[in-house]
Design a binder for these strands. Structure first.
Lengths: 128, 128
DNA sequence: CAGAATCCAGCTCGATACTG
DNA sequence: CAGTATCGAGCTGGATTCTG
């Protein structure tokens, strides 16, 4: 934890809002989940199948965090085997809108990144 | 690795561009570094002091990744104790511009998030 | 169906020491 | 100054099992 005493020369203090939000969105599962819920409410197991590679544990954990942050809503429908529907909240939607920008950036610039990587890797011979 | 066989019903395959970019920006240090370099080129130890809580190791690692992705440039100036200046590339700048949106979102909505958290925490009594 | 609990392999990351 | 190398604690996250 530390003190977070105003050291003065820190551009990014540990407690700034950016850090808090970053701790949330610096979680690829959270970003992917928000992206899906943006379109429509989805049930737990459905989400699980939609997101390749996520485990039940991570999905559960991530949803809980997102719910805690007020970014997604949880609605338990008392059917026989209980059904739970997750949806994005208005707040979550504003964030997801920002993230859309990121998704667009990804698709637009991914190629340049991959090229840069290739060049970097071939340049530093001998490493590894 | 796994197969990544086109399963068909996966909205987010493991290999899509979003995932790749996410693996990069889902790294709070990377985001913070880009934010700083956006303003001006900075030397290694200077960066270290500017970003509260980052270790020398993480800084070094993260810079290397960012350089590999073509998002930041590295220029070694052959002074006596060598000086290395990191700067953001045009490509990095376009990404950082997106991230600015995120930073703005953070400052704008952080309060709502914190309120939601407080409500959530007080609601789930007994947990723990 | 939706999740909680447990176990544990593996990666992350900080601390420390050393180099060019 | 700008790193690299190594070690170890701790967290992450997958697999599995169990419950309402």
């Amino acid at each position: 934890m530390k003190s977070t005493t105003t050291k003065g020369s820190n551009a990014y203090a540990a407690a700034c809002p950016t850090r808090v939000v970053l701790d949330r969105i610096a979680d690829k599962w959270a970003v992917l989940i928000l992206g899906l819920l943006q379109e429509e409410p989805i049930r737990f197991n459905r989400l699980r199948k939609q997101i390749e590679g996520i485990s039940q544990k991570m999905l559960s954990q991530t949803l809980k965090k997102l719910e805690r942050d007020g970014l997604v809503g949880r609605k338990a429908i008392p059917t026989v085997p209980v059904t739970v529907e997750y949806s994005i909240t208005p707040l979550g939607r504003t964030l997801s809108a920002m993230l859309d920008g990121l998704r667009v950036w990804a698709e637009t610039h991914i190629e340049k990144v991959l090229i840069a990587q290739k060049r970097y890797d071939s340049g530093s011979r001998g490493s590894r």
